[in-house]
Design a protein around this nucleic acid. Structure first.
Lengths: 155, 155
DNA sequence: ACCAGATAATATGAGAACCATACCATCTTC
DNA sequence: GAAGATGGTATGGTTCTCATATTATCTGGT
């Protein structure tokens, strides 16, 4: 009943609930930040993917985001017009296009996340270095799990 | 340079990066799960808000989700038609409407998250009860910070 | 080298979504 | 009870999404 295993099971449930809540809240925060930047949610997600992956084609990006390729054309049109990304021709394949994030506007995003970042820093001060490393590892594993679960669902 | 404070600062940055990555991946996972259920991203978010808050009106829901009230009418029309939520009249205020999540379809969602939940359980087995409690607390504080940061941005 | 088929991206057009405004019903205050 | 506030939704114009078709380029087989 109150075995260690049972306790851990309950804690795992709490973690999943808390992660779900955090995920929802961060999505809503993204929505607000995006709104300030005149960015649609899906556009913001795509911009983040481009930032993360460095440089990739519209097709690959559409696959990652779970969007139709034609939809990605529209997303990139908006992002390019607003100066968030640039389309470059792939030197090795003249059909292909490479999307690159424009570095200049990164500061605007950071400013809007400033409040949230400050709060996260405050929270972090309450933990030891070992504890922070533990949490960082957990979050990285969670992100990886999300990536895999998404891939499983799309294949 | 390699003081404890400096180390902690670097770890805090890593945590913020990992959290941002996890948030993006979970958003993409939500997108895939939603797609299987014929749910738009925004509809899924609203459904989660209703599940979380129990019962509330379209107006309050629109405020939480950062949407225009008229948009929420469309969201609720879709959710109601597909049987995800029910609109009930508020007995105390005949203008008002109360939105309630329909319990029946919860299983469908859980099934689609089954893979992700299993992966999270696996990850959790690698931590002690104390560590899990620490992580759960951190996540709850992160969710709260997100809520506050969003509120600050919308006011 | 050439041709057939595959691949990358985008144009087109139909249907749907989003939201500003207007509107109706009901509540609250004086 | 009247005036204004509030909650929700109908309407209509703009924008977005995506299936399909199109164009340009690449690849493999002969």
């Amino acid at each position: 009943m109150s075995s260690i295993a049972g306790l851990k099971r309950r804690l795992a449930i709490q973690i999943k609930e808390a992660m779900r809540d955090a995920s929802l809240q961060l999505a809503l925060l993204n929505h607000q930040v995006g709104a300030r930047l005149k960015l649609r949610d899906v556009d913001f997600d795509c911009l983040n993917l481009v930032s993360q992956h460095g440089s990739l084609g519209p097709g690959a990006l559409a696959k990652l985001a779970g969007l139709h390729p034609a939809t990605m054309t529209g997303v990139l049109d908006r992002l390019e017009k607003a100066g968030w990304v640039a389309r470059e021709r792939d030197p090795d394949d003249r059909r292909a296009v490479l999307v690159r994030a424009a570095k200049e506007r990164g500061r605007e995003v950071l400013d809007l996340f400033d409040d949230m970042n400050g709060k996260m820093d405050e929270i972090c001060t309450d933990y030891t270095a070992d504890e922070l490393a533990l949490i960082a590892g957990f979050l990285r594993r969670t992100a990886a799990a999300g990536r895999e679960a998404t891939a499983t669902l799309t294949e």
